[in-house]
Design a protein around this nucleic acid. Structure first.
Length: 423
RNA sequence: AGAGAGGUGGCCGAGCGGUCGAAGGCGCACGCCUGGAAAGCGUGUAUACACCAAAAGUGUAUCGAGGGUUCGAAUCCCUUCCUCUCUGCCA
């Protein structure tokens, strides 16, 4: 959520920047400013009213004490009138505040200056590429065929137990998953991230805190009995650790990492491009989260990008980095770098990590602040990224490392798997 | 799930209809004292919003949350959430 003060002060700059997302924010912004105007006027009127009522109450008390009941009675009547007026003003204030809040929720984050205007993923800018795309033998298979051939993942069994999109990992497939998780966590903690095991469900307040609610309501699994949402990413519980928190400057940088399963309903996405591990309802992910001083957040973002690069280099996977254009940028992000690995057998790029700076957009909803040197409360910046999402990394390894003899496990993972070959 | 107790400032804890944004203590900050420290003494110590060009200042709200009674609520009533103790159930 953008800060109302910022919208007041930089109306034009914000509208201009949001054009990069292919949206015309001008009508919403003017509605916001209108609501803001009304809200402030109403509050001023209400405050004056209440101040008068408070004063009266004190006078009435004094009169009663000194036995002047008749005079008190007169003031009581005025007090009753004030009360009626206050009620009306209070109702207006609540209503306009809610309207304002709802309007603010509809406005996405302002893209960073480096973000290019653009309509869709077509317009994303590739800024880095590394690793050699292997030449596979002629009978090379996509990962879903390999998973079947070596009995690593059973998609049908998952359908029987839960439904489509809930695969069952078996044997070396399960072990490889566990190896990846352990390896990622070890890498992240070695880089200074503190490991967290958060709840896999969150309440409504947490959903709002990171921006999944209200706009992505239908994409999360919900348990109405207990009013809990299954997390779509560890970002939600981990970032919400900092909801309503005031840090001190010495706490920066805050660096957390968490492995969690992630649950996404992903309603409406079917077809060949979601085959196998490409898109699931439940998948594993190791997330990194940072809370940063506003002046250091882009440095922190670079650090996260560098960190993910290092992991991919160690895994010896061909990948590229994209800077998302305005049209493809997530609602809450100011700047996002997507990592994609090349799936040789599918001949396409697969997104495996998304590293973003949210600046104060999440912090504003979360009320995540810190005390600056002058003792003032200032919103912090939040960042997060995947390091990494499992299924597509697994798919990439299976496909890119396949040989006629079997699948060669990347060296870095062998201590974790305990085997160097799946055959 | 049932019975009981309770949720007050950074923390502990008093207040149980007006003078309470809230005693007292701890902590913290600054000052005095000291060769230096401790102790002692003194001063200060919440957040949000509004008014104001801004600072100063003023006003309003906040004693888990929401509603009600009252001229006036931390204090009374209702609803709800959470915590603790006991009982039950359970990995």
């Amino acid at each position: 959520m953008l800060q109302i003060q910022a919208i007041r002060a930089q109306e034009d700059a914000i509208i201009t920047a949001l054009k990069k997302r292919q949206i015309d924010a001008a009508p919403i912004v003017s509605k916001i400013l209108e609501a803001d105007q009304l809200r402030r006027a109403t509050q001023t009127a209400l405050d004056e009213n209440l101040a008068r009522a408070n004063k009266l109450a004190k006078e009435i008390g004094g009169l009663f004490k000194s036995g002047k009941a008749a005079e008190a009675q007169v003031l009581k009547e005025e007090s009753a009138t004030l009360k009626e007026a206050s009620k009306t003003l209070q109702a207006t204030l609540s209503e306009v505040s809610e309207t304002l809040q709802d309007l603010l929720y509809t406005l996405p984050n302002v893209p960073h200056e480096s973000v290019a205007a653009g309509k869709s993923e077509e317009d994303n800018e590739e800024i880095f590429r590394a690793g050699d795309i292997p030449t596979l033998h002629k009978d090379a298979l996509p990962h879903w065929e390999l998973a079947k051939k070596y009995d690593l993942i059973d998609f049908e069994l998952g359908v029987k137990i839960a439904g489509a999109g809930f695969p069952v990992y078996k044997g070396k497939g399960a072990k490889l998953q566990r190896a990846l998780i352990a390896y990622f966590l070890d890498k992240n903690t070695a880089a200074g991230y503190t490991e967290i095991q958060p709840p896999l469900v969150v309440n409504e307040a947490s959903g709002y805190g990171t921006g999944q609610l209200p706009d992505k309501e239908g994409q999360m699994y919900y348990m109405p009995e207990d009013k809990l949402y299954l997390i779509p990413t560890a970002e939600v519980p981990v970032t919400n650790i900092f909801r309503d928190v005031v840090l001190s400057e010495s706490d920066f940088p805050v660096k957390y990492t968490a492995y969690t399963p992630c649950f996404r309903r992903e309603a409406g996405s079917y077809g060949a491009h979601v085959r196998g591990l490409n898109r699931l309802h439940q998948f594993d992910k190791v997330e990194i989260v940072q809370v940063s001083h506003p002046e250091a957040s882009y440095e922190a973002l670079d650090g996260m990008v560098h960190h993910v690069k290092e992991i991919l280099q160690e895994l010896e996977i061909p990948y590229r980095i994209l800077r998302l254009c305005g049209g493809d940028l997530g609602f809450t992000a100011a700047l996002t770098f997507d990592f994609e690995l090349f799936s040789t057998a599918q001949d396409r790029w697969l997104e495996i990590s998304s590293v973003s700076n949210f600046e104060t957009f999440q912090a504003n909803r979360l009320k995540l602040r810190f005390k600056d040197a002058a003792g003032k409360s200032v919103l912090a910046h939040t960042l997060n990224g995947s390091a990494l999402a499992l299924p597509r990394v697994l798919a990439g390894i299976l496909e890119n490392c396949q040989t006629p003899e079997g699948i060669k496990i990347p060296k870095i993972l062998q201590p974790y798997t305990g085997f160097d070959m799946i055959s």
